[in-house]
Write a protein that binds this DNA or RNA. Structure first.
Length: 598
DNA sequence: GAGAAAA
DNA sequence: TTTTCTCAACGCTGG
DNA sequence: CCAGCG
């Protein structure tokens, strides 16, 4: 098996002769598909990893009809487990690769299916394409894949011609990097070419050198956690030879020698570039330079977390140590949460006039609503399609700017700017208190049954406080607010009638008598609801969290989901609202409209 | 969190 | 110079 | 007309 490998580079080659791809963080892999319909996945070390990815093989067999005239065939790409379109989860694929037991593999494939991101075609109908140029190979590849829709298990890696476009995506998605490829290049073995370059998306961090091991040349890199140095990685390369020797000598002359390793108390600091911190260990660390001007006391775990977060350069953050949730989460935690969740949250804020709640001094201090953009705000937060002074949050830097200004809650209307009709219908299921959360679980499941019967695809999330909210995405312009009101009223009253002791549509609190309030009035023009993934002003730092319907069961605890664990949740089990946006167009609303319009 | 107004 | 103020919104209901 | 509600 021949592999063309990209050459590491720090600069992105520019010019018309280049194209650019997002570099996905997974297993480099070839998919070999024989005329006898035998499908094999081969890794870079020429290991057969087919048995670890049965879902990919199954997909191929299911789609045999698209490929049968093209065999035998050889696809080159990256086998990944996607967090989202541009971000692969390396930890997950590595985990999968280690599994041996076929039942566990099956379970994992079901829960977190892999995706084969194809970037090259080296054989088609048995004809080797190594000598064809990249543009032609890509053309054949796109022809081969054109019958398939976008969210398939085998997908084409997108090609970009603009460096700034690909840069922006790589930065926002915290992708592994960029691969630049020369359009005219042939497919060559190894690295003896100047046609493919990889430019990694390095994070620059600050660490303390606390130990040196002369037997292998590695320095131990630490940061301060509660004023104590903790190990974050080992690093060897990157320094100039004389600098490296000076530091080595320093350890050997002044360090404490124990079991073959020299130790020094915190003092020497260095900038280091790395891909990430994974399993308490820096990935691919390399020294940039020893920093005499940075005191070791600045090299803290908190600083490391901010450096790894890759906040937009243009935003200067402030007071990152301030506790916004007392004894719980600081502004640093909020900034990192918002930055990491942004790829899942931003699509719900897109082109909507926001109402935000700000708590610049924390949730226990003064808070205030804001829906007009202050004069001093950067103009990327304002609406280009409206004269009104709305706050619009379409980009990563917009939401990070808002977070730095103490924005905690993001409330959104149901229509987009410039439109008078909703893009979704919502039910707010509001129990009297957290002890009655089970009422919301019951109501949501009943609602789901009704909506299923109407053939409507619905989504459910926690409010982040004590209730649940159920959404039906609809096509923009397909219904007026008058019509959605009729619909939500009819459904809410039906639920109320069937369980009058549990549910009520009574607006006055004193008449509710510990029943769950089905708030269908809250759905309307100029009304808002908390956005998916928005943090809440609760002492736990809870988040309005999208759920899978099978999670809506008796022992569900909405206080479990916080800004401390929701990012990890979407990395591990994906986003339950992942196909929400497709459903605006795909929703079949015939039965509902018949109900409303008679 | 930051600009404007009031003290 | 220091302190304080402001930062949304609107229809509906019951008293 | 105002306070409460969301």
């Amino acid at each position: 098996m021949e592999w063309m490998k990209p050459i590491a580079s720090t600069e992105i080659p520019a010019g018309d002769e280049w194209l650019y791809e997002v570099k996905y963080d997974g297993f480099r892999c070839k998919l070999v598909w024989s005329v006898t319909n035998k499908i094999t996945l081969i890794s870079k070390n020429n290991h057969d990893i087919t048995k670890n990815f049965p879902e990919v093989i199954q997909w191929c067999e299911n789609n045999y009809k698209y490929f049968k005239n093209k065999l035998p065939l050889e696809l080159d790409g990256e086998l990944v487990i996607l967090n989202h379109r541009y971000q692969a989860n390396f930890a997950q694929i590595q985990n999968r690769g280690r599994l041996q037991n076929s039942d566990r593999i099956k379970k994992s494939a079901n829960l977190r299916p892999a995706t084969f991101m194809v970037f090259d075609l080296t054989e088609l109908k048995g004809k080797k394409l190594h000598q064809s140029n990249l543009s032609l190979r890509k053309k054949y590849l796109y022809q081969l894949m054109q019958e398939l829709t976008e969210n398939e298990m085998i997908r084409c890696v997108e090609s970009f011609t603009s460096i700034s476009n690909v840069n922006e995506i790589v930065y926002a998605a915290k992708a592994e990097g960029i691969v630049a490829k020369k359009k005219k290049s042939t497919y060559q073995k190894g690295k003896q070419h100047n046609d493919w370059f990889k430019i990694k998306n390095w994070r620059l961090i600050h660490g303390i050198l606390t130990a040196y091991n002369p037997s292998n040349g590695y320095f131990t890199v630490s940061v301060l956690k509660n004023n104590q140095p903790i190990h974050i990685g080992k690093c060897k390369h990157g320094l100039a030879k004389d600098t490296s020797q000076t530091v080595q000598r320093l350890f050997q002359d002044q360090g404490d020698f124990l079991d073959g390793i020299y130790y020094l108390p915190p003092a020497i600091t260095s900038t280091i570039h790395t891909l990430d911190l994974y399993d308490h260990e820096l990935r691919e660390p390399e020294f940039k330079q020893i920093t005499a001007d940075i005191p070791y006391t600045e090299c803290t775990l908190e600083k490391l977390q901010l450096d790894l977060a890759q906040l937009p350069h243009s935003i200067e953050v402030s007071n990152t140590d301030k506790y916004l949730w007392p004894n719980n989460y600081t502004k640093k935690d909020l900034l990192i949460y918002i930055r990491e969740i942004s790829t899942w949250m931003l699509p719900f804020l897109r082109q909507k006039a926001l109402t935000i709640i700000r708590c610049p001094d924390g949730i226990t201090e003064e808070s205030f609503f804001q829906k007009n953009l202050p004069d001093y705000a950067p103009d990327y937060l304002s609406s280009t399609s409206s004269q009104e002074n709305y706050i619009v949050c379409n980009h990563l830097k917009s939401i990070v700017w808002l977070a730095n200004h103490g924005s905690i809650e993001y409330h959104i209307p149901f229509q987009r700017i410039g439109h008078v009709t909703p893009v979704e219908i919502a039910f707010d299921l509001d129990p009297p208190d957290r002890e009655h959360f089970n009422l919301a679980v019951h109501a949501a499941n009943l609602l789901k049954q009704i909506l299923d019967e109407l053939e409507l695809v619905s989504f459910v999330k926690t409010s982040g406080n004590k209730g649940l909210q159920v959404y039906i995405p609809i096509r923009e312009g397909s219904m007026t607010y008058d019509e959605t009101f009729l619909f939500t009223e009819a459904i809410a009253k039906t639920l109320e009638r069937s369980y009058p002791n549990d549910f009520t549509t009574e607006r006055m609190k004193k008449n509710r008598n510990n029943r769950l309030y089905i708030d269908y009035v809250q759905h309307g023009k100029d009304k808002t609801l908390i956005a998916p993934y928005s943090p809440r002003m609760t002492k736990e730092g809870t988040v309005s969290t999208p759920l899978y319907w099978n999670e809506v069961v008796e022992d569900l605890d909405p206080t479990f989901f916080t800004i401390g664990n929701v990012v990890n949740r979407v990395h591990e089990i994906g986003c339950p609202f992942a196909n929400y946006h497709d459903m605006h167009e795909q929703q079949d609303m015939k039965k509902m409209l018949r109900l409303v319009r008679g």
